[in-house]
Each structure stands twice: as structure tokens, then as C-alpha cells.
Design a protein around this nucleic acid. Structure first.
Length: 606
RNA sequence: GGUCCGGUAGCUCAGUUGGAUUAGAGCAACAGCCUUCUAAGCUGUGGGUCAAGGGUUCGAAUCCCUUCCGGAUCACCA
């Protein structure tokens, strides 16, 4: 039983004994004692004031006395401030807690069992017509972190990706390549496939825009209004017509178009794989929209038969969601083809066939909140058990100083470039530091990779996912303060001490003698360490990677203060030295576990 | 216009299910600390009407209502 549990249990018993009233454990408010008061944990007694019919101070005093008498092993002392009962926990309890933390290699994690729910989490979901940018990175990092957090809370997790590999946007890239590519390939261009395809997409847009402008001018000269002319030009431009024709050919399985499509997609996937690998992101199962987009139709027609949906005179199929407070939603066009929503239903169908899903999480930007509200209702109506409670993990956009990222306007931050830059920065920063020990070049690069990516990942993940976040490319991501490298540095320092201890032949036992005299700072650290369990649970409940990031920062900040004020290897009292080593080791472990959940690697030295 | 989400220091952000005279970090600015386990660190100074107003109660940045500001969305686009 933990210290908290023991105290809560004692409070419940105390209320029963003193006031003959029954309270449950959840009603006991136990919190960390504020810095300015003496004690470690505080019981808020206001909830018991009515039961006891006494002043808050009196209740706190009586309860304090009871705890001291009946829970002697944990409660060493107590004091009362207004309605707050501050408890001083016995040093032996703290050391025992540290021993428990040390003994558990996966402290704070819950193992999945056979009965654990299966959670499927979808993230990334790229289009195949352009390389990944910073917005995708936020998605991927959040998704993979979330998957690990959910797994650490004792669930079975399947990570999935739905690749949007068909549609007009791919045709645009294909067409541009045909017209202006001169048979170039990633090999001959010396360029990643996704970037090459992205270039052709941009090229298409450039030519298309020129055509539109010209056409519009012509229309205006013919006496058309400006707005109308622009609209019409957009539809009439020869390039877009050609792209549409290509899409039709694709849908009709035209061998030539299909072959080109296949080839170009392969290039893109090879490029994506590199990016994913660098990001440290992976999937258990990848779905392709070209495989799923027809599946939804079947399901919709099934729903139509059951009378869940209705058909209009023009043949289009709709869902009426007005009774749920929403609008009507198109599911099949009048020509019988699918829309976005239909595809998502199709993907859901395939997934349900592939896995016994208990819960589904979609990591998708907040611009699609409405879409997922509708999807949830539709899936529920169609009989998917997890439909009603599907989670749309909705995250905010990444903004640049001059507004949103727009690939059309070229105001994007490319993921590959950004990662490479961060790693290079980390390498340079490290070079500038004066080091006592020379680090070999290949290890220096490996450290720079961990640190550069750590800085980037932490920068993105520490922010509450719901909020839009600002990224200023002008100011590069910092390596000081509340950053990934700060945490990694702390870890590297501990690793260094542990190496030295080992060299000196010091063995850190798994269990520390509970009679060692420890300081306030040290009990604070143990208490903080213990908070990891709650942080993991909370992050799992709230789907909050940022909660883990903030925890890791608080823990390392606390440790750095300790590191500064206390000597570890220089401590003369052998028992204290061993204790501090064990404490440091536990901090390193928890930091590694916590940052591991975020996909951030720890260097053994920096 | 309807719905949803945000608004905390000059900037970027924390603030666990309401809790303690003084709302916390980091960056930026300024001032200190390396003959001692890694100074990517530590310590200090300045900086706030928690968007505004009302309500709920022992107690509100946190919950409720109203208003203001910003964003998203409401397509036979994906």
C-alpha cells in the first residue's frame, strides 16, 4: 500500500471513529503540502465539517491526533492551518517508497492482460502528393506518444495509418510529371520521392494558376463579372480538366494511369518511410484509401435498406441528423460515387473485420471536429459498437508568425529539413561546449541526433494538444530551460555519476536502509518520483502527452536543484552516499520511462 | 447566423477532479555562482485587473450565465 493509500484509509477510519459517519476514499482530498507550510501531504477537512458539526480547525486537530495514534508508521507529525491538516510523513516511509520504485523496472506502467481492451489508434494519414510538414509532425508525434501512453495504462494497442493515396490531388502531381518531368526519378534527381512528387504538385499549381488568370482575363474582357469569371476559369482551365480525366481513367482501371500511379506512390512511400524512421514513428497496420473507398458504399446502401438513411430524387443518399442536433449529411453523390464520409465508414468496416476493436481513437486536426461528430453518430447507427464512444483526439494547428501553414503559398516548414536542421544545431551547440572528455565523432553525431530530435519533439509535445501552437522558424528551438535537452542533460549527468560509482566499485543495493537520515529536498524528490504513476494514469485518462512532458520537466528541475546543493560521490557518510545514488538512479529511470513515452531518447552523455 | 474550441507576464506555455495572505515555469533583460559528481546547470531582481462583468460558496484562473476578442466548422472538397 502506498503512503497516500495508507493515509486515506486512516482518514476514513478516523471519521468513522470520531464522528460515526461513513465516507468513501474518493471523498478524502489529499494533496501535496504547499511549500510555505511544514509537512508533505495535506488533508483538506472542509468536506467533513458538516458531518462533524465542528469548526474546521477542530476537525483537523482531532483527525490529526487520530492519524498520529493510528497510523504511526507513516504519520510522524502533523499541524493544522485553518481547515488544512498538514501531515509530516516519517522518513522510513519515504525510503521504503523509494525502494519500491527502484524495484519496479517499469514503475508507473500497467501491463496489458488478455482481458485488456483493444484500442486502435489512427494517426498520420498523409496525402501522397507532398512531403510531410510540421503540421504532420505534430500529428505523428502526438499519435505515437498517445499510443505508448495508452499502452502504459494497460491496454492493447494497434497503431494504424490510413493513406490517402487516390484522388484529384495525386492526379495533379502525376499529370505534371508526365508533362514536364522528362522521365525524372528520385534516383536521377537525387531527391527523396515525396519531395520530388511534391515539387510536381507545386509545378502543377503554378501552371494551373497561370491558366486561370489568363482565362479569367479573357472572360472579363467578354463582359463577365470578376468573381464569376474567376470561378469559371477555375473549372474551365485545360489543366484541371485533364487532371479530372486522369482521375476518371484511374477509376476505370486504365492500365497506363494505374501503372504511373503505382510507380509514383512507391516513390512517395519510400520517402515517407525515411521520414517516419527519423521521427521514430511506426504502425502496426496501414490501410490505403484506394482499397477502402468502395467499401463504404456497401455499408451505406445497407443502412439505406434498413431505413437509416434516405434517397433523394436525384439519387443521392443522405443521413438526416437533425434529431441529433446536426444537419443532413451527404453519403453518396447522385452519380453514386463516395464522399469523404463514405470512405471513413468503409475504413471502419474493414478495421472492424480485421480487429476486435473496443475503442477507436482518431488523431486528426480540430478542423474536422464536425466530421467526427457526424462519423460517430453514423457508425453508431450502422451498428459499430465503438462508434458512439469513438474518440476524436483533436489537436490545434501549428501556426507560423505570419499565420497558418499553407502549402499552396509555400509557407510550410518541411519535416525532413526541420529535423536535419535541429540535429545540426545540436551538433554545433555541443561542439561549442568545452568538454573535459573528448567524445568520438560518431558518438557525437548520435548524441546530436537524440538531442536535436529531443528538442523538437519536446517543443511540440509539451504544449496542450488542443491549443494552436506557434512555431517561429526565425528563432530556432532552444536548448536551455524548459526543453528536451535540459531533461536529457540531467539524465546524462546522472548516467555519468552512475558510471563513476561503478568504476569505483560501489554497488547500489535494491533496498536502502530505512534509517538513513534524509533531507527535505530528498523527500521532495521521492514524492515527485512517486507522482509518475499518477501522471501516467492522468495522461491516459485525458489523452495528454503534454502532461507527461510537464511531469518530466518538474522532476528534472527538482533533481537539478538537488544535484547542485548536495554532493553525491563526495558524501562522506557511506549510507547517505548509497541512498543518493539509489535516488539518482531512480530519477534517471523514471525520466527515461517518461520521455520514452514521448518517443524521446536519452543520451548516456552529452 | 448555428455549433465547437481557445483568451493566464513583452514572448512561449504550466496550473491535476474548485483549496491555503504572495497565480507558477521557461525565453528575453539585468545581477551573482565553475581549483569540487557535466555551467545545455544553479541562485536572485524586475514583469499580471488570470479578456470583461455578474452568479454559485467557507474558498473561483478553475463551475454557471452574459458580453468582448481570436480560431475552426456548417460543400455532390478531402
Amino acid at each position: 500500500m502506498t503512503i497516500e493509500e495508507k493515509i486515506i484509509q486512516a482518514v476514513v477510519a478516523g471519521v468513522k471513529a470520531l464522528y460515526d459517519a461513513v465516507v468513501i476514499a474518493d471523498q478524502v482530498q489529499l494533496q501535496k503540502t504547499k511549500k510555505e507550510f511544514e509537512g508533505h501531504l495535506t488533508v483538506v477537512v472542509f468536506p467533513f465539517v458538516k458531518i462533524a458539526r465542528k469548526k474546521p480547525e477542530d476537525v483537523a486537530a482531532e483527525l490529526g491526533k487520530y492519524l498520529q495514534d493510528n497510523a504511526q508508521d507513516v504519520v510522524a507529525n502533523y499541524n493544522v492551518v485553518k481547515g488544512f491538516l498538514n501531515i509530516v510523513v516519517s522518513p522510513a516511509s519515504w525510503i521504503q517508497l523509494l525502494n519500491e520504485i527502484s524495484a519496479d523496472e517499469k514503475f508507473g506502467f500497467k501491463e496489458a492482460t488478455n482481458d485488456s481492451p483493444l484500442v486502435m489508434i489512427e494517426y498520420s494519414s498523409p496525402n501522397t502528393n507532398k512531403p510531410l510538414h510540421l503540421g504532420h509532425m505534430r500529428n505523428n508525434l502526438l499519435g505515437s506518444a498517445l499510443a505508448r501512453i495508452i499502452e502504459a495504462n494497460g491496454n492493447k494497442v494497434v497503431k494504424t495509418n490510413i493513406v490517402n493515396d487516390r484522388g484529384i490531388h495525386i492526379c495533379k502531381s502525376m499529370l505534371a510529371w508526365q508533362k514536364w518531368g522528362n522521365g525524372v526519378t528520385p534516383e536521377t534527381a537525387g531527391k527523396k520521392g515525396d519531395h520530388l512528387i511534391g515539387d510536381f504538385y507545386v509545378l502543377f499549381d503554378k501552371h494551373y494558376k497561370a491558366e486561370c488568370d489568363e482565362l479569367a482575363k479573357q472572360y472579363i474582357a467578354d463582359g463577365m463579372g470578376e468573381e464569376e469569371a474567376k470561378e469559371k476559369a477555375k473549372q474551365d482551365a485545360p489543366l484541371i480538366k485533364e487532371a479530372h480525366e486522369m482521375l476518371v481513367k484511374w477509376e476505370h482501371n486504365d492500365p497506363e494511369v494505374r501503372q504511373l500511379w503505382k510507380t509514383m506512390n512507391e516513390w512517395v512511400y519510400a520517402g515517407f518511410d525515411e521520414t517516419y524512421k527519423m521521427m521514430g514513428v511506426s504502425f502496426d497496420k496501414i490501410y490505403y484509401e484506394s482499397d477502402t473507398y468502395l467499401e463504404g458504399k456497401e455499408k451505406v446502401l445497407e443502412g439505406l435498406e434498413k431505413g437509416l438513411f434516405y434517397r433523394r430524387e436525384d439519387g443521392s443518399v443522405w443521413a438526416d441528423l437533425s434529431s441529433d442536433g446536426l444537419d443532413e449529411k451527404l453519403l453518396l453523390r447522385s452519380d453514386g460515387t463516395s464522399v469523404y464520409m463514405t470512405q471513413d465508414i468503409g475504413t471502419a468496416k474493414l478495421r472492424y473485420e480485421d480487429y476486435p476493436i473496443d475503442k477507436m481513437i482518431y488523431v486528426v486536426g480540430n478542423e474536422q471536429n464536425y466530421h467526427f461528430q457526424v462519423l460517430s453518430l453514423l457508425l453508431d447507427k450502422l451498428g459499430f459498437e465503438w462508434g458512439k464512444d469513438l474518440v476524436h483526439f483533436s489537436y490545434g494547428m501549428v501556426e507560423l508568425p505570419n499565420g497558418k501553414m499553407k502549402s499552396r503559398e509555400g509557407t510550410v516548414v518541411d519535416a525532413d529539413e526541420l529535423m536535419a536542421d535541429m540535429i545540426e544545431d545540436a551538433y554545433q551547440v555541443s561542439k561549442e561546449m568545452t568538454k573535459k572528455v573528448q567524445i568520438p565523432e560518431d558518438e557525437a553525431h548520435e548524441i546530436a541526433r537524440k538531442v536535436g530530435l529531443g528538442a523538437l519533439k519536446y517543443f511540440i509535445l509539451k504544449v496542450d494538444a488542443r491549443k494552436n501552437m506557434l512555431f517561429n522558424p526565425e528563432e530556432s528551438i532552444n536548448f536551455n530551460g524548459d526543453t528536451g535537452p535540459f531533461i536529457q542533460y540531467t539524465y546524462a549527468r546522472i548516467a555519468s555519476i552512475l558510471r563513476k560509482a561503478e568504476e569505483a566499485g560501489i554497488v547500489v543495493p535494491t533496498a536502502i536502509d530505512s534509517n538513513v537520515v534524509i533531507s527535505e529536498k530528498e523527500t521532495d524528490l521521492i514524492q515527485k518520483l512517486n507522482g509518475f504513476k499518477a501522471a501516467v494514469r492522468q495522461a491516459g485518462q485525458d489523452y495528454s502527452p503534454s502532461g507527461i512532458a510537464n511531469y518530466c520537466y518538474e522532476l528534472t528541475k527538482e533533481y537539478n536543484q538537488f544535484y547542485h546543493d548536495f554532493s553525491i560521490l563526495g558524501e562522506e557518510d557511506e549510507n547517505k552516499k548509497i541512498f543518493r545514488l539509489a535516488l539518482s538512479k531512480a530519477v534517471a529511470k523514471v525520466v527515461r520511462l517518461g520521455m520514452g513515452l514521448l518517443g524521446i531518447e536519452m543520451p548516456e552523455r552529452m
